[in-house]
């Protein structure tokens, strides 16, 4: 089974939900279940797809998020008001949840919901 490594960064107050750590290095499977189930790490049965942002968000909730899920996710994606960058580009230009992750991608999540 092949894996891909990713650099993840949380800021704008979002890091508070992730052990107050801004930067994380993670490894996820290159092929993942189509239903985005992040729990199984071994060999998989059933339909798979290449790991994408939708899967990553579910994976982060399962493995890195420490508290208050509702401040990170809503309706199977990130909560409105959280900005996402893929290799320093707005994810809205990269296909959002459908973006297929590559080895060494850098994904940044920034909350805009904290005080100005």
């Amino acid at each position: 089974m092949t894996f891909i490594s990713l650099r993840i960064e949380f800021s704008g107050g979002l890091e508070l939900l992730f052990s107050n750590e801004k930067r994380h290095k993670i490894t996820i499977p290159a092929q993942v279940p189509v239903d985005n189930n992040p729990k199984v790490d071994g060999p998989r049965n059933g339909d798979t797809k290449a790991a994408d942002m939708d899967f990553l968000i579910h994976w982060l909730r399962e493995h890195l998020l420490k508290e208050r899920t509702e401040l990170f996710m809503e309706n199977s994606t990130v909560r409105p008001g959280i900005l996402v960058l893929i290799n320093d580009t707005d994810w809205e230009l990269e296909g959002e949840g459908e973006y297929q992750l590559k080895d060494n991608d850098e994904i940044v999540f920034i909350s805009t919901l904290h005080g100005g």
Binding site: S11, G12, G13, L83, L85, V108, I110, T112, H114, G115
Partner: peptide
């Protein structure tokens, strides 16, 4: 927020 990010401005973000 994107301006602050790309300019690497130093700001503080914690809820009261």
């Amino acid at each position: 927020v994107m301006y602050a990010y790309f300019k690497k401005l130093d700001y503080f973000s914690t809820e009261c």
